[in-house]
Design a protein around this nucleic acid. Structure first.
Length: 425
RNA sequence: GGAGGGUUGGCCGAGUGGACGAAGGCGGCUGUCUUGAAAACAGCUGCGCCGGAAACGGCGCCGGGGGUUCGAAUCCCUCACCCUCCGCCA
């Protein structure tokens, strides 16, 4: 959520931002009008309430003194004021609800350094690391390798749960588990993160906090009897860990890392990427989440990206860093970089991480603040997150980059202690 | 799933239809005293919103929402969560 004062004081700046984001339909003008109306109503309601409070206190005093008749007179007048208040409050409540809705549907503003562009075609490749391996045979896609090795079972996944589900078995299942454990260990031991194991189902207010609701309900699974939603990413429960809290400045930055499964409906990409394990309704991810002060947020993003890149480097898989242009930023991000690993079998760059700085956008929605100085007023923190990394796609990259002519796959060196074998065959 | 008891300020804890500012304690901050500290004493001690250049004033907040009333932490309804007991169960 943006600061309403920003809309009040610099509406042009906000409208300009909506233009470069391709979000001209965001209800900026509605919000400005509703905010104005809200304050008009508030001034009147509060004046009436002040009058009623004074009157009620007077009634109390008169009753104690036994002046019943005079009290009755004031009572009658107070009742009338009460009715006026009720009428005004009814409108006020509606205006506040409408304003809230409008504010929840206005996206975050991009940082000035974000390149302007209309869609993903104008994203900027910031750097490419590592050389794609030269094969002396035709590299196979992971679904062929995985099925032949007996470590990926698509048919049975579909039998159990339909399309976009698969089963991992044997060393395939173990490879994924090894990656989870190893990545967690790297972030905990080498990058200083604290491990968190959160709930995989959350209440809707958490999703509002991170910005998945109300706009993106379409992509989420929910229980239809109770207010439980399956998390689409660990970002949701972990960011909400500190909702409605006021943190101490010395606590910041807070660095969390969490492994969770993620659940997504993928309605938007119906029919896309249905082959293999690139895009399932359920996938695993190790996610990093940071809480920082506004002053350090931007540099912490660089650290976060570097922490994610470390995983790519240690796995010795070629990758590139892509900066999202304004038109491809997510609803909540002020700036965002993706990490993409090269997959020679499917011949594409796979998004394995998405690292974003949300400034105070999520913090305002989730009410996460900190106190800069012991006595000072609380301020909103900055939140950040990034995958470190998304599992099935790293499995794809490993299978396809480390495959051998006979269809076997060499285990990356860093994973061998976790796998217990050097080759999957 | 059933029955009962709870949810009060950073923490503990009192309260009950009216006295403006929710007692008291702890913790924290400031001051006095002291060479310094402790102790003692005194004062301060939350969050949000609105108006205002500011000083300051007002409104709201005793788990969430709604209701009764001139007036609710206090009564009623409802939801959530916690505790105890029973049942069921890995």
């Amino acid at each position: 959520m943006l600061d309403i004062r920003l809309l009040r004081e610099e509406p042009e700046r906000v409208r300009e931002a909506m233009k470069v984001l391709g979000a001209e339909d965001a209800p900026v003008d509605e919000a400005i009008a509703l905010d104005k109306r809200r304050r008009e109503l508030l001034v009147r309601v509060e004046a009436l309430k002040a009058e009623r409070n004074t009157g009620s206190r007077r009634i109390g005093a008169l009753m104690r003194e036994g002046e019943r008749e005079e009290a009755e007179g004031i009572k009658a007048r107070m009742k009338q004021i009460g009715e006026e208040i009720a009428a005004l409050e009814k409108e006020l409540k509606q205006v506040e609800q409408d304003l809230e809705w409008a504010m929840l549907n206005i996206p975050n503003l991009p940082l000035p350094e974000v390149p302007v562009g209309k869609d993903e075609s104008e994203n900027v490749v910031v750097k490419v690391v590592g050389e794609p391996r030269a094969f002396d045979f035709q590299p196979k896609p992971h679904w062929e390798l995985g099925e032949a090795l007996g470590i990926l079972d698509f048919e049975r996944g579909v039998k159990l749960s339909g399309s976009r589900f698969y089963v991992m078995r044997g060393l395939g299942a173990k490879l994924q588990r090894a990656l989870i454990t190893w990545m967690l260990d790297v972030h905990i031991e080498q990058h200083g993160y604290t491990e968190v194991y959160p709930p995989f189902m959350v209440r809707s207010h958490c999703l509002v906090g991170t910005g998945n609701l109300p706009k993106f309900a379409d992509n989420l699974y929910k229980d239809h009897e109770e207010d439980f939603w399956w998390i689409p990413t660990a970002e949701v429960p972990v960011t909400n860990l500190h909702r409605d809290e006021i943190l101490d400045a010395e606590q910041l930055p807070i660095n969390y890392v969490a492994y969770t499964p993620c659940f997504r409906r993928e309605k938007m990409s119906a029919g896309k990427d249905t082959r293999g394990i690139k895009r399932g309704h359920q996938f695993d991810k190790v996610e990093m989440v940071k809480f920082t002060t506004p002053e350090t947020g931007r540099e912490e993003l660089d650290k976060l990206i570097d922490n994610a890149e470390d995983i790519c480097r240690m796995l010795e898989i070629p990758y590139r860093v892509v900066q999202m242009c304004t038109g491809d930023l997510s609803f909540v991000a002020a700036i965002k970089f993706d990490l993409e690993m090269w997959a020679p079998g499917v011949e594409e760059w796979l998004e394995v991480s998405s690292c974003s700085l949300f400034t105070d956008f999520q913090a305002r929605r989730a009410n996460i603040r900190y106190r800069p100085e012991p006595k000072a007023r609380p301020r909103y923190v900055y939140t950040l997150n990034g995958s470190g990394l998304a599992l099935p796609r790293v499995v794809i990259a490993i299978l396809e980059n480390y495959q051998q002519a006979d269809g076997s796959v060499i285990v990356p060196e860093v994973l061998r202690p976790y796998m217990g074998v050097e080759v999957i065959r």
